[in-house]
């Protein structure tokens, strides 16, 4: 346990934790986006996929708990580091330019915390399906779909279309994913830096690739509410 103690005992170690958990969350974000994009294939494939994910509650809860631990570690290391970093400069500059640094890099905690709030809303919206937050007056738990093989499962497709049909909700999602990508644009590059996986040959490539990946995620995630607003799946709307 010496290793773990040492790991958490130094800022470099906590950055490793943040980088590794960040990498997991990034991969989750990619997978989540790919799954969601199946909305463009229609109700049947998306609902079948959603059903597959939820078919084993044990596995599902395992995954959820793992994700929760990852998030706690990610946020925990961020908060611990930030407190320390603040303490390292007790007297502030009157004029500070933070030459050479990007806005994204200086606001990681802020973007992260706002993102956290967004994720909570997102869970209440689609996972817990709390009627109060979807602003459409409908209860998503009532939406049912019968798969081709006759299985009855939740109609995720309809839930998404209905959910994003509300302009304010769509806008909020747009803001949320923009912030996510802003966070990842710096975060993915910094992840490689913190784990020592950058050098002068591919260092700048990694940084650019991080922003490209963030851009791809942004487009992917944003495409769904935008498409719904433009009329995707309007046949399921009342």
């Amino acid at each position: 346990m010496n290793l773990l103690q040492e790991l958490w005992g130094s800022s470099l170690g906590r950055k490793y934790v943040m980088a590794v958990t960040g990498a997991c969350l990034f991969l989750f974000a990619v997978g989540h986006m790919v799954g969601n994009l199946q909305v463009f294939l229609g109700a049947e494939p998306l609902n079948a996929y959603a059903h597959l994910l939820q078919s084993s509650p044990k596995l599902l809860w395992c995954a959820r708990l793992t994700l929760l631990v990852i998030v706690i570690l990610h946020v925990g290391s961020a908060v611990a580091l930030t407190l320390e970093n603040r303490a390292a400069r007790p007297v502030a500059y009157v004029q500070a330019r933070y030459e050479g640094s990007s806005l994204a890099s200086r606001t990681m905690l802020l973007s992260g915390l706002i993102l956290g709030c967004f994720v909570v809303f997102h869970l209440l919206h689609y996972t817990v399906r709390m009627p109060a937050v979807n602003l459409t007056g409908k209860d998503f738990a009532d939406f049912q779909h019968t798969l081709a093989d006759g299985t009855v499962c939740p109609d995720v497709y309809r839930m998404m279309i209905v959910g994003f049909s509300h302009r304010l909700v769509a806008l909020f999602y747009a803001v949320g994913v923009t912030l996510l990508c802003f966070h990842l644009g710096h975060g993915v590059g910094a992840m490689f830096q913190s784990l020592g996986l950058k050098n002068r040959v591919w260092g700048s490539v990694v940084d650019r690739a991080a922003w490209v990946a963030a851009g791809v995620l942004w487009l992917g995630y944003l495409s769904i509410p935008v498409a719904v607003q433009l009329g995707l799946g309007k046949e399921v709307l009342p």
Binding site: S11, L12, L81, E84, N85, S101, S105, A190, S194
Partner: peptide, 15 residues
Amino acid sequence: AGFGGCSVTGSCEAV
């Protein structure tokens, strides 16, 4: 010594 950690902002390199 009480220094902070690295947030990879790049200010150090710039100055």
